[in-house]
Amino acid sequence: MSVNAKQLISDFKNGLWQENPIFRLVIGMCPTLAVTNTMVNGLAMGLATSFVLISSEIVVSLIKKLIPGDVRIPSYILIIATFVTFVDYFLKAFYPSIAASLSLFVPLIVVNCLILGRQETFASQNPVHRSFADALGMGIGFTWALLLLSAVRELFGMGSMFGLQILGDWYRPMVIMVLPAGAFITLGILIAIMNVIGKNATNDTTCH
């Protein structure tokens, strides 16, 4: 395998586990906690964020030389906000029920620090193909983490998965799991578990 392909694969794999946005970097917490009350919401948020991440990393990587250093951040935010508006109208037009249940958190993708952070640390310094690999890996990493968190919350909180009742009538749903309190506690426990699996626990919020 050529060096180039190896590089691409490692860029891609980075976000899946080693620098997983949620479990290792602990960024993008607002949507992570807010929309993971059902698996459908978690998946939709993961995909929407991935789309914005991939498109904006491609664009930023393409025009990085044209942007003066001082207006870097505002330019990135503008680009991101444009893609977010696109996603928002797309969801409202073709998936109205998902758009309704994610509501405010679709526009809030604009300020998801994961996306801005990747522009700053990766796309602005690397060529398009590597930025694409990075964005894809980060997007999938973000999505699977959201799915896992929402699976735990929906299963215990409502006894269902993807809206299908899994646990029978004998199960009394732990309502706390779908409430804010349950979101914080579940994520805390999941990160602790990931720290045990990943051993070298270094997570500390890198962006505020």
Binding site: F90, K92, A93
Partner: peptide, 19 residues
């Protein structure tokens, strides 16, 4: 950005209104 979004808006608004 404004031009692109105008197109997006024109394209999606009939669907949104129909919904």
């Amino acid at each position: 950005s404004a031009i692109l979004l105008t197109f997006v808006y024109q394209w999606t608004i009939p669907y949104i209104e129909a919904n």
